[in-house]
Amino acid sequence: MLPLDIDALTGCLASSACLVTQTTSGFIIGMLLFLVAVGLTLIFGVLKVVNFSHGAFYMFGAYFAMTAYQLTGSFALAMLCGAAGTAILGLVFERGFMSRVYGADVLMQLLVCYAFVLIFDDVVRMIWGPEFKSMGMPAAFQVAPLFIAGGVVPPYYLLLIGVALAAAAILGLGLARTRIGKVIRAAAHNPGMVSALGINTGLIYGGVFALGGMLAGLAGALAAPVRSLTPGMGFSVLIESFIVTVIGGMGSILGALIGALLIGMIRSFGSLGFPLFTEGLMYLFMVIVLVSRPTGLFGKEVA
């Protein structure tokens, strides 16, 4: 088999059915990635730490959602539990541990995060067991896929894209237009001054960390009906999130959105045109961005 299959790619670009299917497929991959990456980039933008244990929040979101769904049978409640549970976990993790290493060097922060990657995986193993689990698709979404311009679009994925886009819009507007958003942006610029003005920066840091954890948890909860749940499932998602933030620029929300969608499209169209080089294509793109714009595509913007 050839590493290049340009015929398949051009054939797809010429057909509306294929174009619609692959574009939505790219959106699905991209939007879930965005929810994880945006938390990562937000935490870095405000707290100036790289949260290497961010994948664990995605994992906990999925497990919380599965348990809530099994107990209540309500999909909405499952999503809520996934998001709220990881928000609380994020707050506890930040106040209890991360806040102690803000002044320390990067190696120390990395070690603390890595320790928690292992601890969180083992906690999941102890509570839910080492075997893989599946949440199952809620009955409401067990319907035939929609056909839009000949392309196949599953209704569940429309909901997934909608929720993720809504989260992006609320986050973007909230940071730009609200008073809390202003305070967060100010804390990112000059935490000393913000605290001198009588604002509790500890609270803001905890809140931002909780928000980041919540977004990753929401991604895990949304992914739970279609992806299998295992301890350590956050790892590969974390790697891709890093690629997204490197491409989009650390600290930029718009960058995370564009970066995530780019990765999604590379995966979805790359698997047609470059079946043996889809992963490589992602890294190649990252290298090109790093060489030509080391700060990332939107690296100058401040969250």
Binding site: C18, T21, Q22, S25, I29, V152, S236, S271
Partner: peptide, 13 residues
Amino acid sequence: QPDYTEVVTKILQ
């Protein structure tokens, strides 16, 4: 690999 969406749609095509 956690997500197979692009593989699924490729096979559908």
